[in-house]
Nucleic acid binder design. Structure first.
Ligand SMILES: NC(=O)c1ccc[n+]([C@@H]2O[C@H](COP(=O)([O-])OP(=O)(O)OC[C@H]3O[C@@H](n4cnc5c(N)ncnc54)[C@H](O)[C@@H]3O)[C@@H](O)[C@H]2O)c1
Ligand SMILES: NC(=O)c1ccc[n+]([C@@H]2O[C@H](COP(=O)([O-])OP(=O)(O)OC[C@H]3O[C@@H](n4cnc5c(N)ncnc54)[C@H](O)[C@@H]3O)[C@@H](O)[C@H]2O)c1
Lengths: 218, 218
DNA sequence: CCCTTTTTGTGAAAACTATCACATAAAAAG
DNA sequence: CTTTTTATGTGATAGTTTTCACAAAAAGGG
């Protein structure tokens, strides 16, 4: 399984948007206001107001005709949909450059996500890196099963990625955010979400190149 | 402009796949083989063979009935489509954790991408970080225009992102890979591609939570 | 209290994307 | 040379996602 086919008729693209709405709503709430309109949310994340309302409609979220939405209510509902309760524990395998960057990022804890530990085969990386303890990779499976960790971040080189995934899955993770540029296969049921930063950069380059009326070059 | 609406009737989703095909083709070529079938490419990136052939069909790429594709030919064609010639210069604004990780990543140069320099307002970050020179941010605009840099990576805090984008665009960049979790607006024509790692992680968490038959919780 | 304004909620339509299925070509086998 | 096998290329189909457009509800003004 790489991504679940379908969760109850929901448009899959609306999930990342819900997360973005959440970010915006927190900002609006912090700014003191408790009222927000679909067009404001739309502008804040660069989409149309109709799209915002359609997303809400899909999840049965209702506002007030003419009165917009209560920011705090909306935030609560979206957080419930996303399942973002405090204390969502995550571990990182591979405390190289990317693992370090992720472990130091302050933004996750604001969303109730707690990066508990890192694991690495390199003894030099073990000890304490910034915020979190880093253990030898041999302890990874046990840590996951003992602490009932459900989600892991995979930030090891591509060669090691499948092997590391297998260990995590044996430990009991149910979801993995994979940064290694390879397609992985989980033995048991485990959702794998790939983030390939190389692809993202080359995707951008394609558009930049294409708009620069490349075409005479070949 | 956030992403160009349409480039010549091409399915936008096929572009990241082309990049992935390219990665696979390079591996296959390195392994000695010069022949590949649509189902092999499909398996390697976790999609269907029909999808692979449809992507190729869309770009007018043709193989041999029954004989699959010549790996080297295919690679050449895809690289031409993507515009991936050697020496695509990129700069990074914000040499914090993420900027450092990206600047140290070896995978980019294999694709002809060269990260030339970093820029940061923090004098402590300036000098040489790993592979690349890091200059004060005040020099960013001049560097971009003098060296005709077309693409920038934005890895500064969200507060500073719009300001930093404006400087980059004034310098003359035509594309920006934005890691800051905010929606940005370019003054002039500049393609902005957002990568929001928080959203990616929370997207995964949604599926993990949803599959764990959450629902009785509310 | 009624009229105007504004913003929601949502079916219907449009646009986009993926899958199917099969004709077609070429290689291999007989 | 003919038959069989295998994999491509693509029109047709199915599915998904976004946009449109407008009725309906609520707020506010006169
Ligand atoms: N850094 C980037 O900007 C970037 C960009 C694109 C893709 N990626 C991908 O992200 C992943 C991580 O990148 P990085 O730059 O952090 O790499 P890195 O080399 O800096 O770090 C990898 C870490 O994994 C550890 N490791 C290796 N094998 C292991 C194993 N079997 N078990 C546990 N730990 C192991 C290494 O000791 C090292 O600390 C790689 O797959 C890379 O291709 C990174
Ligand atoms: N690190 C992560 O894992 C992670 C995860 C999700 C999102 N992000 C986002 O990516 C961006 C970078 O994250 P990070 O962890 O590298 O942050 P960081 O704080 O480590 O680094 C930010 C860097 O930007 C520099 N900077 C600040 N203002 C600047 C300006 N005006 N001009 C030039 N440089 C400036 C700072 O000096 C610092 O070196 C942030 O927007 C963050 O929200 C990061």
């Amino acid at each position: 399984m790489n991504l679940p086919q379908k969760i109850a008729g929901v448009n899959k693209n609306s999930i990342p948007r819900l997360v973005q709405y959440k970010y915006v709503l927190k900002k609006v709430l912090a700014s003191g206001s408790d009222r927000v309109y679909s067009n404001e949310l739309a502008d804040a994340i660069g989409i149309t107001a109709a799209q915002v309302r359609k997303d809400f409609s899909l999840f049965g979220i209702m506002g007030n005709k003419r009165g917009g939405y209560s920011v705090s209510d909306l935030l609560g509902i979206i957080q419930r949909i996303l399942g973002s309760q405090p204390g969502q524990d995550v571990i990182i395998a591979g405390m190289g450059h990317l693992g370090i960057a992720l472990s130091n990022y302050k933004g996750f804890e604001k969303e109730g996500i707690c990066i508990r530990a890192g694991f690495d085969i390199d003894p030099v990386k073990c000890g304490v890196q910034g915020n979190i303890p880093v253990y030898p990779f041999s302890e990874c499976e046990g840590y996951i099963s003992n602490r009932n960790i459900k989600v892991g971040i995979l930030a090891v080189p591509a060669d090691a990625a499948q092997l590391v995934l297998d260990v995590m899955v044996r430990g009991g993770v149910e979801g993995v955010l994979n940064f290694a540029p390879v397609h992985l296969m989980a033995q048991r049921s485990c959702v794998i979400h790939d983030v390939n930063l190389g692809v993202e950069l080359e995707f951008l380059l394609y558009f930049v190149n294409a708009l620069n009326n490349r075409g005479g070059k070949a």
